[in-house]
């Protein structure tokens, strides 16, 4: 148990490092760019007519305070961290005066719900099919399934989502292609609303799952075809253990361990995909919020979503990391 504590601590240190580097990157990207967000915003506002020098100067000080861009760089860096740690990104300019944190809070459950479901589905099915395909190498159905799954794998999320949108939005409109639920339904835990949420999530989810399946499938198939050459599998087969027992408990169980690590390592990429898929299907999550914030020129919101994404993804990776010993007991004993 003590060694598990040390393991968790080192993983937590890595989590802190990821957040530290990620947030620092956002700071340097925003503060070393040739464009000053404050000046850009002032330019935007004065273009609309107001140009009283005194008011502009007041506004500049207020905005510099809001975004922490005044003073020397090192001081700005510490102010920046202070604001991040208190999750204070100021009001959103595109939906003034709602605070950025409220907008993010509204979008976050949609993204987490969509992403968690899709990741679990594609991980479980990808590994299951990959395991079967690795064990029954000559099975024709599994070979065909492999070709189809791997055909989707290299195509980026945007293209898959776009093609689904063309098919189901244009050629054969049977599924909703935009929004998180029908707009005329009141929110609540009733069947009608939940079914609408489910129907709206089918296309975004399908895009994420279709791309995701291939990686797990290929990984698992390769791992399984290595594991079945191990002596203990041959021994179990000779000892008369049923195949229906060997495959899940002798083969897949052992091949699963690297796939858990793989899950932790690919969460960032899956999140990247979700952003663009949400945008294509106007799904009300973080991705659409981020992209519409860019179009609206909403600095605080863009920064807020980016920061939250980094923290959320690394927190999810940390969670998988500390659950890892469940799959690989050797970590606990070591």
């Amino acid at each position: 148990m003590r060694s598990y504590g040390i393991y968790v601590l080192t993983r937590f240190a890595q989590f802190l490092l990821v957040v530290f580097i990620g947030i620092s990157l956002t700071f340097f990207i925003t503060h070393l760019s040739p464009i000053d967000p404050v000046e850009q915003m002032i330019a935007g506002m004065t273009a609309m007519g107001q140009s009283d020098p005194e008011a502009v100067s007041l506004m500049r000080t207020a905005l510099q305070e809001l975004y922490g861009t005044g003073g020397p760089l090192i001081e700005q860096y510490f102010t920046y961290w202070g604001r991040i740690l208190s999750a204070d990104f100021g009001p959103s300019l595109s939906s003034f005066p709602t605070p950025v944190s409220v907008l993010i809070g509204r979008a976050l459950p949609w993204t987490i719900g969509l992403l968690a479901t899709c990741t679990v589905i594609s991980w479980v099915f990808g590994n299951l099919l990959g395991g079967l395909a690795g064990y029954f190498r000559e099975n024709r159905m599994l070979k065909l399934a492999g070709v189809i799954i791997m055909g989707f794998h290299p195509v980026p999320y945007y293209i898959i989502a776009f093609v689904l949108l063309i098919i189901f939005g244009l050629m054969w409109p049977i599924l909703p292609t935009s929004g998180g639920a029908a707009a005329n339904l009141p929110r609540g835990w009733n069947a009608e609303y939940l079914i609408s949420v489910l129907r709206h999530s089918i296309l975004p989810a399908a895009s994420i799952i279709l791309v995701g399946l291939g990686g797990w499938f290929m990984g698992m198939r390769a791992l399984v075809s290595n594991v079945i050459t191990e002596d203990y599998v041959t021994y179990a087969e000779l000892g008369g253990v049923k195949r229906s027992r060997i495959l899940p408990f002798y083969v897949i169980r052992n091949a699963l361990v690297p796939q858990v690590t793989g899950l932790a390592m690919s969460l960032g990429a899956i999140f990247n995909g979700a952003i663009i898929v949400e945008f294509v299907f106007s799904y009300p999550g973080l991705g659409r919020l981020l992209i519409s914030a860019v179009y609206a020129g909403d600095y605080g919101l863009v920064l807020g979503v980016t920061t939250i994404s980094i923290v959320a993804v690394s927190a999810a990776v940390f969670l998988i990391d500390i659950l890892y010993p469940v799959f690989d007991p050797r970590v606990k004993l070591a």
Partner: peptide
């Protein structure tokens, strides 16, 4: 590997 790069690129 862990950091979601796409939000960073959009910020950039």
């Amino acid at each position: 590997i862990v950091i979601p790069l796409f939000p960073l690129l959009i910020l950039f």
